[in-house]
């Protein structure tokens, strides 16, 4: 018999977030091993078809639309109430969601509410011998743990962003749409009063190319060197904790254990020594370039290209080469 799998959809800037689509990828991957009915839950306010059209082209079975003012912004109390009401009615076997900030609030809250187990922040999820099983990073990514859910009832997992790809879209729409009623949240909860999009540039965890600077940058002004290069490459600027602690860069650009985990195609580390707390945030990048005066700095041991030298000499030359190549010179 087919099992029901739900994916929870979050939006960002009024669009379906990339992480939410990646979760659909994870679901489809699992659907290769067992017979799954994949359904997405899209809750919002004043929803039009345009808002969820993308979901109809993912090759999934059904989309549930819930339109209520409580879902104008993320509302943990309303979300968990909605999903547990729906779970009672439809009995899903599995609920997946992104392990972003909202998902990391919702997944454990739901697990408590539904008295069931949770696999948090999975980088791989699979179904084996009737169990839900995952691989998840522990010790800030220095160890990977294989864990299985050993409980009855619905199984919940959150999926780490940017590990699974965004699924290929399909042209033909076979996805059903079902409207679900929600009566509003009456309990005590946390309500968003204002959203501050403080991010000047790009969210580094979504960037394909990151140029990152550390203590070796010596000042906030010198980061202009990295911004020039990043702009040319269509990338974002990251930072080590030391650079953030110096006040040179905002915390949301910090890479590492107490910052973001990034997996870009190219990570260029400039004046970063490569402390283990930094490495765990970027060592899954496809290609790593390190520019450092010190050939023995730990970052040089994990870099694909370890450039020994003064970054203030090296970066401008590299930027110039890309600029020339851009302008066809």
């Amino acid at each position: 018999m087919s099992q029901r799998l739900w994916t929870i959809v979050f939006t960002k800037d009024d669009k379906i977030s990339r992480e939410s689509l990646e979760v659909i990828s994870a679901a489809k991957q699992m659907g290769k091993d067992i017979d799954l009915t994949i359904e997405a839950i899209f809750a919002g306010h004043k929803i039009s078809v345009e808002d969820y059209r993308e979901l109809l082209h993912q090759g999934i079975d059904r989309v549930y639309i819930i339109d209520h003012k409580d879902f104008r912004d993320f509302n943990l109390g309303a979300m968990k109430e909605l999903i547990s009401e729906m779970a009672e009615k439809y009995s899903p076997s599995i609920i997946l969601m992104p392990a972003n900030v909202y998902g990391k609030e919702l997944a454990p809250s739901l697990s408590g509410m539904l008295k069931t187990g949770l696999l948090a922040d999975c980088i791989e999820i699979r179904h084996r011998d009737g169990f839900l099983e995952c691989t998840r990073p522990i010790y800030a990514g220095r160890i990977l743990s294989k864990v299985k859910l050993d409980c009855d009832g619905v199984k919940i997992a959150s999926i780490r962003p940017h590990v699974y790809p965004v699924p290929e879209t399909v042209d033909e729409v076979t996805t059903e749409v079902e409207i679900v009623q929600y009566n509003g949240f009456s309990g005590a909860g946390a309500v968003i009063r204002e959203i501050q999009e403080t991010l000047g540039g790009m969210d580094i965890s979504e960037a394909n190319i990151i140029v990152s600077g550390g203590k070796g940058m010596k000042s906030a002004e010198n980061f202009a060197l990295l911004e020039d290069l990043a702009r040319l490459l269509g990338g974002a600027v990251g930072a080590s904790r030391s650079a953030v602690d110096e006040g040179w860069r905002p915390h949301h650009d910090q890479v590492g254990q107490t910052g973001k985990v990034v997996m870009p195609d190219l990570y260029i580390a400039c004046g970063i020594s490569g402390a283990v707390q930094h490495l765990v945030g970027m060592n899954r990048s496809k290609c790593i370039v390190a520019i450092n005066k010190d050939p023995d700095a730990p970052i040089m041991k994990i870099a694909d290209y370890a450039i020994v030298g003064d970054l203030f000499e090296m970066i401008p030359i590299l930027t110039e080469k890309f600029r020339k190549c851009r302008t066809g010179g």
Partner: peptide
């Protein structure tokens, strides 16, 4: 509440 793209001001 700090999130990926900024912060939410939350009343609770």
């Amino acid at each position: 509440r700090e999130k990926e793209s900024g912060a939410d001001v939350v009343c609770v």
